[in-house]
Design a protein around this nucleic acid. Structure first.
Lengths: 333, 333
DNA sequence: GTGAAAGCGCTAACAG
DNA sequence: CTGTTAGCGCTTTCAC
């Protein structure tokens, strides 16, 4: 059983006032070197740790930041969370990771609940929160992966360009019947990727609306809809999936239909999650710099919080083609 | 810009004292129905939300619980976290998910940091924390997935029996040179699984220490060591991997060596994560009831916290064989 | 039934 | 340089 010491007890033990203890604790204001040492040793002796809650109450800050993601089971988000956590931890903040299921009410509930706890700021991956909701909360916030509004700081990658590159890449490989498994309509980066795809295929006179279907950013759903698609349109020779999870779904669907990848069908995903390397064939993807995006968003938020300046920054990252077996016949296979 | 109302303002608005407001807020003590209604409408009108921090300071509770996991990138843990989150949320608690990297100091840091914030309790997946460390903290805690000490409440599955079943299953399929990719030595469930494996193979006179190697619960490491192993001992016809991530690693290694799974080599994993269904062939595994384990641990902790009774419960779940392509030649392949 | 007041543990004027 | 004191917003005796 450990007795938790308070600042008062430290003060008594050191023979000073609580104000002095507070001063040495926060390295603020003048304090004589000798008394400072005395206080320090009392702190040590009593194993005193300042009470974070009392501090929060006064300061209206908590040294906590909230990270809201739509789906913790999609490995993209744990990878992102790790990045965020690394920088928040190193700056002495505690990260609260929340799963929203892409649900507006859950997001709002988290925002409310954490604000009650004086969370210093938020990083959110959201498609349902709009500028007005965020502004309502009046708290430092940066959007990650998906932009909320031009006026709200955000970190994301160039989804449109990446999608164009992906599509172009399939073209270069000789694909002529290219399908796109797109993400949900309400998610703006899914929309961007879709647009990148159509702009390129239209440009080449290869666009066919029947070759675009919605996989809902989910493996299961994608397996279903892609199987249908491939049965109806067996001439498809390339598929650009709107994210890596769906690319895995496409791969499973192709496999079940007895299609050879990449010989019969080439597949490219988007995101660059580690999972792409666990399938067979391994999946080619447009990789986002996930870790860097996470750390950038975290730094941006902490700057915002600590300097208190109202920033309005956007950081847009470029995605990079990572070629793997799903588009390329390797010698080994 | 939203102005946050305090209990004082609500009291003034309703023409009562803060004590009365507090009473209606907490449904505690007598309060006249009429004044109660008046207070309620003032609360509504001012959009008042009680300040969680002030409340924590007084109560020494925060309605937060901490969940410490070793590796958020292993999908097993997000799945577990989702389960825990579902019950903690439904009971009005905020879950703080922490990643420890299986590192003693990070675990301790989280324990300390969150205790400063009056976190109500912890659920921990740990191999490095021992009973004395936990007791030092003197806070409700339940161990999940890995037991810490007989005296500390825990939820986990029957790793030993599951491992025996897995090994026996490979035997039944006709495997005679069975290897085991084990997890780290300091992780007790890895040890149990190893023991289950050796007990069965020894019993059959098939045990060979050269066929047991350490894959460190990681895909990458497992690919390396398994490649080595398979090159040295090409006679291996079955592999029991200590978890699903390592099973994926084994699959990759086999694939790179041109081995056919399951024809040349049968593979079985342990855990039952969704990832097993994304590979090709899909991976047979001893599935733990992940969701149920998570909810059980959460309920146990909340009971502990709310009833304040010192419990000492163990919940041991049985694992279940899920047969897939990595051990069974399906007609489709 | 309701209010006044003390206090949770800490910080920040304000004096001295 | 250091101590006194008034809160941060809430809960809870203890009177009335």
């Amino acid at each position: 059983m450990i007795v938790i010491a308070t600042i008062k007890e430290v003060a008594k033990e050191a023979g000073v006032s609580v104000a002095t203890v507070s001063r040495v604790l926060n390295n603020k204001g003048y304090v004589n070197e000798d008394t400072r040492k005395r206080v320090m040793s009392s702190i040590e002796k009593l194993n005193y740790k300042p009470n974070a809650v009392a501090r929060s109450l006064f300061k209206k800050k908590s040294k906590m930041i909230g990270l809201i993601v739509p789906d913790i089971k999609n490995p993209f988000f744990p990878e992102l969370a790790r990045a965020v956590e690394d920088v928040t931890n190193s700056e002495g903040y505690t990260l609260i990771l929340c799963n929203s299921d892409d649900d507006f009410h859950k997001e709002q509930k988290y925002l409310d609940a954490l604000k009650q706890k004086y969370v210093d700021g938020f990083i959110v991956v959201t498609s349902t929160l709009k500028a007005e909701h965020v502004e309502d909360h009046n708290i430092p916030l940066v959007a990650l992966d998906r932009s909320i509004h031009p006026e709200i700081p955000a970190v994301y990658s160039n989804n449109y360009t990446g999608a164009k590159q992906a599509t172009q890449y399939l073209l270069e490989l000789g694909c002529r019947q290219i399908a796109h498994i797109r993400g949900p309509h309400h998610i703006n980066n899914a929309e961007e990727r879709y647009k990148g795809f159509t702009d390129v295929t239209k440009d080449q006179g290869l666009y066919d609306p029947k070759l675009v279907i919605n996989g809902g950013y989910s493996i299961e759903k994608t397996i279903g809809v892609t199987s249908e698609l491939l049965k109806k349109s067996p001439e498809i020779d390339g598929i650009f999936a709107g994210n890596d999870m769906m690319a895995i779904g496409v791969l499973k669907a192709a496999e079940r239909l007895g299609l050879k990848v990449p010989e019969d069908l080439k597949i490219i995903g988007f995101d660059g999650i580690a999972l792409c390397k666990t399938t067979s064939p391994e999946i080619t993807t447009m990789a986002q710099p996930i870790y860097e995006m996470g750390t950038t968003a975290a730094r941006m938020l902490l700057d915002f919080i600590e300097k208190k300046e109202v920033i309005n920054t956007k950081q847009v990252f470029q995605v990079q083609l990572v070629e793997r077996q799903s588009t390329r016949v390797s010698l080994k296979r």
